[in-house]
Write a protein that binds this DNA or RNA. Structure first.
Lengths: 118, 118
DNA sequence: CAGTATCCTGTGAGATACTG
DNA sequence: CAGTATCTCACAGGATACTG
């Protein structure tokens, strides 16, 4: 049996999370849903530049991972709400750790990057 | 002036970090260097499956961001050592937060994913 | 040893248009 | 409103071979 969380395993489950939060749009969706549920078009408007196709794909992936819940109301016109699950909410903590690091250190990264360009 | 760390800004600097730690190989390199400096070939061997081209690219990116330092010795045969900078070392903390979350919650994610497949 | 140099491919993602 | 359906493309990443 494998070490359950060997960082050097390509199939290490923690990479699942890293890839998810590293991808182009997931973080925007999670951030948008962090305070309240939102509807499809609300998300689309809030997250400037995302296309409906990509938003759908992102939401599907987050649902598949149990981070976001979808709730459809049988109304006319249709209404669908997305919200973070408890699991999704719990992910906000490590995300905030990254955020805190970024706030403290990104200036240095940008400096280093500028120096590297020169 | 923009909010310095508006998660909804496409150019939000914290995305820099998320993309970096979310990419295919950076985390392996950082993990490999977390305890001690390593040479190119040591890294290549430790991180199974990475090609020299990609390892070079990854190291370059990490150097450009000031997370990894490269030190070449004028010897024959050539010797080069890579190590985490203090900045790179400090990144281990938020990374461990993610890791801790993953250890606690990835099983649920995998369950959700399995349920989604069915 | 520590990389370069080429070539190649899959797929994440965008543009655009359409529908129950 | 809440998505689908196509089409297209760039580019991250891989395979393989070579070099100062």
């Amino acid at each position: 049996m494998d070490e359950p969380f060997d960082v050097f395993g390509v199939d290490c489950p923690s990479r699942v999370i890293l890839q998810r939060i590293g991808d182009r749009w997931s973080m925007f969706v999670i951030a948008a849903l962090s305070t309240r549920p939102m509807r499809f078009t609300q998300l689309k408007n809030r997250i400037g530049g995302i296309t409906p196709k990509v938003l759908t794909e992102t939401l599907r992936a987050l649902q598949a991972d149990g981070l976001v819940a979808r709730r459809a109301f049988a109304e006319m016109p249709p209404r669908v709400e997305y919200r973070l699950t408890p699991l999704g909410l719990s992910l906000l903590e490590p995300i905030n750790a990254i955020r805190a690091w970024a706030e403290a250190n990104v200036p240095q990264v940008l400096e280093a990057r500028a120096r590297a360009d020169a």
